[in-house]
Design a protein around this nucleic acid. Structure first.
Lengths: 232, 232
DNA sequence: GTCTATATAGCGATAGAC
DNA sequence: GTCTATCGCTATATAGAC
């Protein structure tokens, strides 16, 4: 089941209007996709019926089949769309001022609130849960999330290493460790559904501890630079 | 669905033989439970039919209903049994000799191979995926895994702190950070199914990096003790 | 292209013989 | 207590009218 879905991504409805016959209603296309995104995120693949999606989208079931072919294709399109929305491009376009610690804290906050957002948690559940998710989808998920974040953050770290404020031999490794720490046990509990709504104080303490930990490990033993050396 | 399953845990088949009538065949009971464990771990709740379990266990479907009542109860019993087997009690009964770094490395290795074992990964998938898993099961999972590990490790850390070899203010926090690091991005990729079989070299490098990181952060700036001060 | 109505199949759970 | 055979339900996917 669901192992050889030909995934046309990203979904390009506009191309279909070039085919013969009456053009399809793109509002209905979007309505179906949105309904599918909501429902598949909420429940699992098996627990969402095409009837529910049709009712949610306000169209008939056959319209869905006309637009998407079958259930697995619709699922792939919906999950893929969710992945694209998962990480806003400007996650790291924060104001680059303040000390290293302050900047790390800001990144930590932005990243943590992003991965705890309901739709992000749901995408995680889809990827982690079983059911034979198409490998293509998993790679889309990974590239959209972890890989992109990691790529940007390594540049950030390298800039600080160049100033001497950080003593890191393996930047890739340190980047992964940072985000691993930011997620931490708290994110695991949230993903598990064991902690639906952590208090702001708990989150604050968790993030501070992670940033502290990171800095303790990677700050030179004899600090040679001050915050004034920050890369602009 | 599956929210109010009365979970009788741990499963005590022996008690049922005390009831009136012919005693149930405990070999069949075990066969059913084993089949359910295997299949539910492999596929998701919805994708496993009672017919498959019956065929796998070599009994008829009604025998399953006779023993377990319904599908959800069987699922709960199977997952609960998996959780109990997840963490061997002697995970930390390692030879307490060697330097702090060597001991941490041994713990890291044991923990990592445990959480990467196939059945542990499958239990994670069950817990993290959606589908309305009974809260009772999630708590069993958490207590059997993270909580037990954490409790033991904090004692280990405290012993080293007392010798002065570690400079840790918040032991609970440090313990969580340690296991978070040991899991790391690699475990996430494994859980996701993006990395089914990491090379020993990759695992080795990952664990070494995690232990190094931990020690860099929590070793006193002016190391005042030697390995000879190790708690016995 | 979109709708209502339906074909086909598989599921969980049960009835009745032994 | 265990089996074979079956009920009742719901799902995906399709046929034919408009």
């Amino acid at each position: 089941m669901m192992t050889s879905t030909p995934l046309d991504l990203p979904d390009r409805p506009s191309l279909k209007t070039l085919g013969p016959g009456r053009p399809k209603d793109m509002k209905k296309h979007a309505a179906i996709l949105n309904a599918a995104k909501r429902l598949f995120a909420q429940d699992s693949f098996a627990d969402v019926s095409m009837d529910r999606i049709a009712a949610e989208a306000g169209v008939s079931k056959l319209t869905i089949y006309s637009h998407f072919g079958d259930k697995e294709t619709l699922f792939a399109a919906a999950v893929s769309a969710q992945c694209q929305e998962m990480l806003p491009d400007n996650l790291f376009h924060i104001r680059q001022q303040g000390t290293l610690r302050e900047q790390l804290k800001m990144i930590a906050c932005a990243f943590f609130s992003m991965i705890c957002a309901e739709q992000t948690v749901n995408v995680h559940r889809i990827m982690l849960g079983h059911g034979n998710i198409d490998m293509t989808l998993k790679h889309i998920f990974w590239k959209a999330g972890a890989e992109r974040t990691h790529r940007i953050f390594t540049k950030f770290l390298q800039a600080w290493i160049d100033t001497g404020a950080l003593d890191i031999a393996d930047v890739d490794c340190a980047s992964k460790q940072f985000f691993t720490l930011i997620k931490g046990e708290l994110h695991m509990r949230i993903i598990c559904g064991l902690c639906n709504d952590p208090s702001p104080e708990e989150v604050e303490a968790h993030l501070d501890a992670a940033v502290d930990f990171f800095l303790r490990a990677y700050t030179p033993r004899m600090p040679a630079v001050t915050a004034a050396d920050a890369p602009r």
